[in-house]
Design a protein around this nucleic acid. Sequence first.
DNA 1: CATGGGATTGACT
DNA 2: GTCAATCCCATGC
Length: 194
Amino acid sequence: MSALAEVLPAAFYDRPVLEVAPDLVGCELRHGECAGVIVEAEAYHQSEPGSHAYIGVRPRTRTLFGRPGLAYVYRSYGIHACINAVTEHEGIGAAVLIRALEPIEGLDLMRARRGLEPVEALCSGPGKLTQALGIELRQDGSDLAEGPITISEPMPGWGEAEIAAGMRIGLTKAAELPWRFCLSGSRFLSRRAG
DNA sequence: CATGGGATTGACT
DNA sequence: GTCAATCCCATGC
């Protein structure tokens, strides 16, 4: 259980996205009875074309420009949902994409939702972890400091873990920026050698 | 109103 | 390694 871990307040997200993204690695993402430790996250900012916010405020991107601490949930390739934590001041389009978790709680429910058994396969990708945790598009714009989706500070021992930076995955634009942050050596990354 | 593409995944060669 | 699935929405006529 996470009795000692406090849910991160909105102020945590009210900082430059390149500070928030590595700080989120080691934190716990929870939805209902399912929870996992964030082992992989990527930063996105309106100033670079890899970000959805690059085009400006649109119906799809409205949440990205909202208050820090909101959840930006979008549909990817028409099939998957992916979740971001909105950062920086309201009016700035910046967010951290949660790409992989180490499953901690609710593994049986995750397995049922995913239709898979191996723990390494439950949350090792941005579309996988939303399916495992039951996160839907309707959660777009919800508040990560209020729930039902929450992110909590690292459990003892996780906060000092070594973090590696690398290039973001799957982009056709601004792919060269080293804005992907991983827990070094984790077995639960979306790809090896992060 | 029609078209095209995407911050992915899983199945298949 | 290749490739289809599938839908929201940005863009252009």
